[in-house]
Amino acid sequence: AQGRTLYVAEATAKQVAVFDIAGNRVTKVFSLPEQPNGLALAPDGLRLYVTAAAPNGRIHVVNLKTGRVSYMLTVGHTPNAPVVSPDGKTLYVCNRFNNNVAVIDLASKKTLAKIAVPREPVAAAITPDGKLLFVANLLPAGAADRDYVAAEVSVIDTTGNKVIATIQLPNGSTGLRGICVSPDGKHTYVTHILGRYQLPTTQLERGWMNTNALSIIDVSKRKLLNTVLLDDVDQGAANAWGVACTDDGRYICVTQAGTHEVSVIDRVKLHDKLASVAKG
């Protein structure tokens, strides 16, 4: 909301809190009939789309002037990660246990399509021009006893409502939790765990078996650019979760659910370093 307001989904309280950033306080709360697990603000700032995780999932559309639910939309099993298109006309919702993404026309309130993705979509992000939707699949699809086991990011063409690319992350990648697109639309960032399941179980205290990672995707090429680790040698960045870029694109912010911390990464320096490494 123009950088002044933060909306917080409070699941166990069945409400959304409105937090005034400048005043550093909660100014009001909106009660809901179900536990909220995902929020998306309309581009005009007048409505909040709230997903409620349930087998027969629903989206509660909250009028932010009145604080009341204007109407509800029926979606799939455990909906989450709602995303509104930049023009405010379309809502995308990840139906986690249906393994699909619902495309909803907000004018007619009808579902236009359900796009199949590999396994348990839990996060999504749209490019600034609204042409591509990147979807993070929580877990690898298929058997876990293969030589290469990794979760994937699905790339959806929003014009044709179809998957046009599937980007496999490094071997051992699992637990994808957060995804965002840079303000310039050039890169997508996704947080996940990187498990070295093919190595001997040694030096667990150094995080050699499971590390926390940030993978970087080239949007135009729809390919994995690189993966960087968020852990220090002696201090882990446990359970990397949400990820977002600052509006000016200077920094990448990653929340660490296991350590209750936020990592702030200099985005320009990160890409400069990766470019230098690529050149040798």
Rank of each mutant, 00 (worst) to 15 (best):
A123S: 11
V84H: 04
A143R: 14
Q256F: 07
R47V: 13
L194D: 08
L169G: 04
W208P: 12
Q203M: 15
V122F: 10
G172L: 00
P55T: 05
I217A: 02
I217P: 01
E10L: 11
V243K: 00
A13F: 06
V83Y: 01
A244Y: 05
G23Q: 10
P55K: 09
T27D: 09
V103Q: 03
V262K: 09
G23K: 13
V16H: 05
A278I: 03
D44M: 07
V190Q: 08
V181W: 02
P170I: 10
A240Y: 05
T12S: 04
G45Q: 11
R250L: 03
H192I: 05
A238V: 14
V117H: 03
P118A: 03
L32V: 06
P200G: 02
V93M: 03
A9P: 08
Q35P: 11
V264E: 05
D145C: 06
A113T: 13
G76N: 02
G172E: 06
G67D: 05
K14W: 11
A123P: 09
Y71S: 02
I156E: 02
Y197A: 05
L39P: 06
V93W: 00
N171M: 05
F30N: 00
L39A: 06
A141F: 00
V277W: 11
V219C: 10
K114P: 00
D147W: 11
R222G: 07
G76R: 09
D266P: 06
L132Q: 14
K28I: 01
S70C: 05
V155F: 12
E261I: 07
F30G: 00
A113D: 10
D234L: 11
L112P: 00
P121F: 08
D218K: 11
N80Y: 13
H187Y: 14
Q235S: 15
A165I: 04
G130R: 02
A52K: 09
L133T: 01
N24W: 12
I104G: 02
A13N: 10
V75I: 04
V117R: 02
L132C: 10
T191N: 04
S182Y: 03
N95Y: 09
A40K: 07
L199E: 15
H60G: 10
L41C: 01
L6F: 14
G23Y: 03
G67Y: 07
H271V: 15
Y189P: 10
V262S: 00
D248N: 12
L112F: 06
G38Y: 07
Y189D: 09
P43Q: 12
T90F: 03
L229N: 14
G258E: 13
T51L: 03
P33A: 11
S173P: 04
N100I: 01
